[in-house]
Amino acid sequence: MFAPKAKYVRQRMTLGDYLNYTGIIIFSIICLLPFLYVLSVSFTSPKEYMPMKLILWPEHFSLESYSFIINRNSFMRSMANSVFVTLVGTVCNLAVTFTGAYGISKKTMPGHKFIVPLVTFTLVFNAGIVPNFLLVRSMGMMNSFWALILPGLTNAWSLLIVRSFIEGISSELEEAAKMDGCTELGVFFKIILPLSKAAIATFTVLFMVNHWNAYFNAMIYMTSTDNWTLPLMIKSMIVDSSALGGAVSSTDEKTVPLETIKMAAIVLSIAPIVITYPFLQKYFEKGVTLGAVKG
């Protein structure tokens, strides 16, 4: 049923195997079912949709909910904002993390003894929500996308992991390059970065997912709805309107029932994750085990 007979299937499937496979399949279904449900409702014709009927496969297939939401400026703007913050934020994260990690990887650099403990300390203690908020506000970054990028430019965990990755790169290569007249700047761009492709891919994935999913900072800094990111939009569409019932009337949404539109919004918001998932999974797994080197 699952795979053609291959040489690694040495024994016949036992009762234990069937139980085990069943258990795994049940858990997988639990993981997938919510998405299947959301997908099915989102593709169901809003006119035919019956709120009290359970569906797991689109009935009366229609793209109406999608065309409705794509034509809604506020939603598309929040999506554009999220794309912008994710792309710019990730590039900034990578630049700062890799240059910084290269810096703290050199024990000969004067100040190394102070810098590393100071960085490590932020791993276990931070000033907390209120002081960080006041700082960002006093810098005039309210409603600026920089408020979502600058306070999280890098973090101790990423720096320390990238540092240990860089330390693993042969120092002989660096020495040879220096003999040839390369400065540390040259070594970084010509040797370290090209040899760090795996780490760069892993951290690209980590940073992108974090930016795309970020909620709290956007909530406290983006007070104007024009600057909302996608998670804020989703939250206001779904969580705020359905805690107590779900029937929120809005002139916008008279023509179509809310539910199919909500589901379409969810699908659009996770689409980038789904599309990049093969890549995400591969490098995320690496990231976890990279982190475990020190775990």
Binding site: L32, W212, I270, Y277
Partner: peptide, 17 residues
Amino acid sequence: YFPYFISWVVTASLTFF
């Protein structure tokens, strides 16, 4: 592994559904 990549906002939304 997939649900791990989904934001808490979406997870909360799915809980509402």
